[in-house]
Write a protein that binds this DNA or RNA. Sequence first.
DNA 1: TCCTAAGCGAGACGGTACGTCCCGTCTTTAG
DNA 2: CTAAAGACGGGACGTACCGTCTCGCTTAGGA
Lengths: 201, 201, 201, 201
Amino acid sequence: MPQSRKPDSSRRSERSRRAIYDAALALVGEVGYTRTTIEGIAARAGVGKQTIYRWWPSKAAVLLEAFLDVAEQAARGEHELPDTGDLEQDLKLVLRATVDELNSPVYDAPARALAAESVVDPALAARFVEKVLEPQLELYVHRLRGAQDVGQASPGVDPRIALELLVGPLAHRWLLRTLPLTHEYADRVVEYALHGLAPRP
Amino acid sequence: MPQSRKPDSSRRSERSRRAIYDAALALVGEVGYTRTTIEGIAARAGVGKQTIYRWWPSKAAVLLEAFLDVAEQAARGEHELPDTGDLEQDLKLVLRATVDELNSPVYDAPARALAAESVVDPALAARFVEKVLEPQLELYVHRLRGAQDVGQASPGVDPRIALELLVGPLAHRWLLRTLPLTHEYADRVVEYALHGLAPRP
Amino acid sequence: MPQSRKPDSSRRSERSRRAIYDAALALVGEVGYTRTTIEGIAARAGVGKQTIYRWWPSKAAVLLEAFLDVAEQAARGEHELPDTGDLEQDLKLVLRATVDELNSPVYDAPARALAAESVVDPALAARFVEKVLEPQLELYVHRLRGAQDVGQASPGVDPRIALELLVGPLAHRWLLRTLPLTHEYADRVVEYALHGLAPRP
Amino acid sequence: MPQSRKPDSSRRSERSRRAIYDAALALVGEVGYTRTTIEGIAARAGVGKQTIYRWWPSKAAVLLEAFLDVAEQAARGEHELPDTGDLEQDLKLVLRATVDELNSPVYDAPARALAAESVVDPALAARFVEKVLEPQLELYVHRLRGAQDVGQASPGVDPRIALELLVGPLAHRWLLRTLPLTHEYADRVVEYALHGLAPRP
DNA sequence: TCCTAAGCGAGACGGTACGTCCCGTCTTTAG
DNA sequence: CTAAAGACGGGACGTACCGTCTCGCTTAGGA
């Protein structure tokens, strides 16, 4: 991991930055993360290798920023989960949307690459979680608190843990491809999580 | 990915196979998966590189077999989850044990590496899931069916999905290291999953 | 260079020996000496590698024997240079025939390979010279002695050196391909060698 | 034979070039051409393998350039054969010097290797002949022409062929080590070549 | 308006690992 | 009980990238 003297970011070429994002995402989509190389990104972006090494510490860091860049543009205004007053319906809606996102090819390739790399690189994981994951999860926390306020969720439940009952199963299927990731599955997860596996009295 | 003409596995050197397993696991533990190389494994095992390329298609495949080898020896006789008649206590026991396993250094390094690689390599994922994951998950299915028979779990619940409410959250924390993976967390997950997030009437 | 305990040559398989000769010559002709391998010879001959290592110390040794084998069959009865009484005509005839041989593809490939290897491997060179070269050169010595007896060559001349004035130039052109190796050239060499470069008084 | 896109020779590292020459010549002298490897040269020169593959197509090509490099330095000003007016003495002097050179260990190892490789690799041979051999032979042509002008050599003789009567025999003995290469032999060759093998009238 | 220092494209460099080929030895198996 | 078949430890091959470096060339901004 390089970088000794900090470069002057005010002189940074915006053009190159964008070209690198585009090249990185395109290559990861086309040939996969493993066969994407820094040399390849530089060549495709029409950029010197040093321009990458100057601004990013690793291939994964480039991809994380590129991914964030498109994610931010896509997430215009989505700063809240829907709240129709019906928690179950709202959650089903959200998890179905998440399923669709995880199944979409443009999202899949870079997200998988970043997740895989994070599993094995704690430093990247920290940034991935902070920038990508936590902002999403915070939305659940907020929605669940609202549900507790109106008596649709048990007051004793910790929302930060509760959300993992919803998100964890989806992530599990997506990451390891154990079984298909469908809307039906999303619905089932919401139902089981809300009403429990034990029989109601 | 090599391999053209199939070698004769009856002539295979058992000694080399074991040495390769040992070297692979040792190196992954010592220097991490990424810095573990096939050359390094061969050198450490006192084996020619070709002997590795002859029998395995990739570094990850070597590690998967090595991991399976120790996992099989460790799993002597554990073909069932405990069944004391109290589902909640049994599940807490099992998830706590899983937490301990995921937190143990010897398990962590190879398992993480295999999980990370599986995220990005569907072929490996299929073998990983089939050989490592599914046998474990099947135990949950069996235990949950038992619970349904004695009225401790809702009869309408699909055990294959139900188990993911338990296992998914743990996997999520472990893989991305979002928050600490503790016994308390395991207990909470079991409680929430069994009794639901919605208030009981 | 291997060979510890001598094998029993009486039990040797004649069939394998011939197959190895054929394979070696064929491969050298087809793909060149450098790309001819012992494994390749064995495979082509339908023979185990060990059968080659048992009887020959090196690839070059195999080729030398194979070459000798065909050379012997070709050289049926040619134990003397022609002697018509006219030394110059006889020599021109012989050197022209040598030129033709050196230019013939079937002779060229193995002979070049052996010569090249001999340049760099004194042990092989000794065997190559003894078995291939010297028997040929001895013919020149004999013919030149005859010429001295009848007054067609100076009595003071050492035939062993004299022959090199004839053979050396041809070998030179053949080995390094400096200039074309033609009948005219052979004639010129004979004339210059016999009558000298200095003006006759 | 590699090389796809041409490197920019103006950026070439002179330091590496020289180190590679030195390493190649040293290794060929110490362990012989066959056991000299490109990896070995690179390691000894403190250079990456790619730096060799970038600039040369083969081990032999490296050695040829290295050999030329020292040969050029050694040949400072030797652009003519001696001309005392006595052709025979001059030639004896030159051939004796050639004998000494061929017998000197520092010259022998690389020159043999290049000759051997040239026998079997026409492309290398062409470069070897052009760069090493022909410049030497041209000196003979020039000296023999001079001799013709002053009546010491027959005017009808082709100098390009004549010189091979002198050089061919030496090369023959050197390459195949048939018989010792001595000053006496050199003298005999000059005498026979100049005055012919046939009796003078 | 020029000077100078930075970012930039390009790509050579010392390295490391790749996956392949073949070496020469050793072991197994089928005739 | 011989030899084919071929697995084995080893080492070099030629390639692909790594991360560093040096080269000219813009391209500002301060003098």
